[in-house]
């Protein structure tokens, strides 16, 4: 933060009111920290709670690490259903992001070319369905007719171009100087080569950002898998987690946990934490791209 340094270099002496202000800010910050951290911690602590534990919830949260039990994680990782669901989620994630970028990038680039004939009409064609949302049933009928039910592609293909993401990417491409494209044309590049050799290397940040938007959406999606995938072998992690939390899919885990003797609440919490781990691990890397992307989107969607 630049300003902090600048003001401190100017300020001679903090007045009493300034000091009270700083104290208030810090109190608010600590309050926010507690509000933000407590729910996360309560879930994590619950997942490590041993079955022998007796006491209140708060005491459980204050349990020191050497008393933690890993039984819930043992029974989850030893469970076939969990591993299958995890694999399915990864498949949806990678296939989804791949197809999404494969379709979004060329369209965004094509529409960013200002002198493209019919550009205005194509943009209107693309925006109409974005503005007018017809709801769930007509899309469900389409997926059923295409016989995509019980195919992983039903989860990501219909969502492969998010119009909003495409428009963000388009406005990024519009910011690249047109001279680059023209000089490449003079050097004998066609537009495909321009896109691959010149535009893409300049657009790593936006491609990361949009790819991550898609990735988070696919990884977190439980609704479409619930609609379109009804075989156990196909269900991704969010569906399994949902079943565990709603106690419908609990039986297999109770049996599995007979070895690990983990309490049911701990297994629920452990599966919550395990589903969040990929996001938490990737989070530090994606944070900077995400914040950049939102700002880009808000300046010109």
């Amino acid at each position: 933060m630049k300003r902090t340094k600048a003001t401190e270099s100017v300020s001679v002496k903090l007045t009493g009111a300034d000091r009270r202000f700083n104290i208030l800010v810090n109190i608010v910050m600590v309050f926010l920290l507690i509000i933000l951290a407590l729910p996360l911690w309560s879930t994590i602590a619950l997942s490590f709670r041993p079955s022998t534990f007796i006491g209140t919830y708060i005491q459980g949260m204050a349990l020191p690490p050497w008393k933690w039990s890993f039984a819930a994680y043992h029974s989850l990782l030893g469970n076939n259903g969990f591993l299958i669901a995890f694999t399915n989620s990864l498949k949806i994630l990678f296939q989804g992001v791949f197809f999404a970028l494969l379709l979004t990038i060329p369209l965004a680039y094509g529409l960013s070319v200002k002198d493209l004939r019919g550009r205005k009409w194509i943009i209107i064609f693309v925006i109409i369905p974005y503005i007018f949302n017809v709801g769930l049933v007509p899309i469900y009928i389409l997926i059923a007719k295409l016989k995509m039910i019980n195919h992983l592609s039903a989860i990501y293909l219909p969502l492969a171009i998010g119009t909003y993401n495409m428009l963000i990417m388009k406005s990024f491409f519009e910011g690249i100087p047109n001279e680059l494209r023209e000089s490449a044309h003079i050097d004998g590049c066609n537009d495909l080569q321009v896109l691959v050799r010149i535009i893409l290397p300049l657009s790593k940040a936006i491609i990361m950002t949009i790819g991550l938007y898609y990735g988070v959406a696919f990884w977190n999606d439980y609704f479409h898998p619930m609609l379109y995938l009804n075989k156990d072998m196909l269900r991704p992690l969010p569906i399994l987690l949902r079943n565990i939390l709603l106690a419908a899919g609990m039986n297999e885990f109770v049996e599995a946990s007979a070895f690990g003797e983990a309490p049911i609440e701990a297994i629920k919490a452990a599966s919550v934490f395990m589903s969040a781990i990929p996001m938490i691990v990737a989070y530090p890397f994606i944070q900077k791209y995400f914040t950049k992307g939102t700002l880009l989107g808000s300046v010109k969607g």
Partner: peptide
């Protein structure tokens, strides 16, 4: 003005946006 506190709050504040509502439901249950 406390940079550690600031970073901590900032990081924790963005994180839940990336969690699905299924995960949120699990957290709310706890």
């Amino acid at each position: 003005r406390r940079s550690v506190l600031r970073k901590l709050v900032q990081t924790l504040a963005y994180l839940p946006h990336f969690l699905s509502w299924v995960i949120m439901y699990g957290i709310l249950l706890s």
